[in-house]
């Protein structure tokens, strides 16, 4: 897998009131890397993710996935939405089957895969429940395996742990880590949570507050699954916090 984001620029508005959201963004993601886009609200990180997903078009620049130009959504990029976007009229099982049905996978294989994903996400026995009947954690796991079920090259996640409280968020992150280790896929995750970025990422791209640029890149070289109490972890957390502070100061 090789994702190249080349010179992406995006601005909104017309008649003189032009707002630049992304300014000449260049990113490369290789292999099974977990990359986080970190920045405050309104810094353009979600816009960048939706461009990679193909939901909207950049004003200039290109996104290449394995050398092919990305210009619309496709099953080669699985998306986990912030609010999960599970279809409320389908059961957990039907939600997970949906991408497989779109790809016309033989019925027997679909059943096998569904079984596999339910097992992986510890959703066995819940496949006949509707999203409104399951807990936040189960929704999140359903959303992740649904995104995995189209066997994408790359997983895109938009603040996937954002909608829950502190403790729940930690639990979900740990669950995701376990799930990800059993099924490693390159990931690009959008977040504004420093701790989340350090806990999950191999590489953190820090975005500027309002210029729409990537201003810093931080490699996180700590063994997985990470211990949130270890010295290495805290050192990394502090470093990242300093970067964000400096970033904020230099722009205000």
């Amino acid at each position: 897998m090789n994702l190249q984001v080349q010179g992406i620029t995006k601005h909104y508005g017309e008649n003189g009131s032009c707002k630049t959201v992304l300014q000449d963004i260049n990113v490369e993601v290789l292999g099974g890397e977990f990359v986080s886009l970190l920045g405050p609200s309104g810094c353009g990180k979600t816009t960048l993710l939706t461009i990679i997903a193909g939901f909207q078009q950049p004003c200039s620049g290109t996104v290449l996935l394995n050398g092919c130009k990305v210009d619309k959504p496709g099953p080669d990029r699985g998306v986990v939405f912030q609010d999960y976007a599970l279809f409320p009229w389908m059961t957990v099982g039907e939600n997970i089957l949906f991408p497989m049905q779109q790809q016309k996978i033989p019925q027997k294989l679909q059943d096998e895969k569904l079984h596999h994903y339910l097992e992986m996400a510890r959703l066995k026995g819940s496949e006949h429940l509707y999203p409104s009947q399951i807990s936040g954690g189960m929704k999140q796991r359903t959303a992740v395996v649904r995104a995995l079920a189209s066997e994408p090259e790359l997983l895109l996640m938009d603040e996937p742990f954002g909608a829950v409280d502190y403790q729940m968020r930690h639990n979900l992150q740990e669950e995701f880590e376990a799930l990800w280790q059993s099924n490693p896929k390159p990931v690009i995750m959008v977040t504004h949570d420093v701790d989340e970025a350090v806990y999950l990422s191999d590489r953190i791209l820090v975005m500027s507050t309002n210029r729409g640029e990537i201003v810093h890149e931080l490699l996180v070289d700590i063994d997985r699954p990470r211990n949130r109490r270890s010295n290495d972890y805290h050192a990394c957390l502090n470093k990242l916090t300093d970067i964000l502070k400096e970033n904020h100061k230099s722009q205000s």
Binding site: G54, G78, A85, F87, W89, F98, P99, Q102, S150
Partner: peptide, 29 residues
């Protein structure tokens, strides 16, 4: 029907008919 549902369906490879019959129709029901 939230835009999210359409985005999700398209990113899972759903075509026009599939989106209509499995997203728009049940969503508007």
């Amino acid at each position: 029907v939230p835009q999210n549902y359409y985005d999700a369906a398209r990113s899972m490879g759903a075509g026009r008919w599939s989106i209509f019959s499995r997203i728009t129709l049940p969503g508007a029901l």
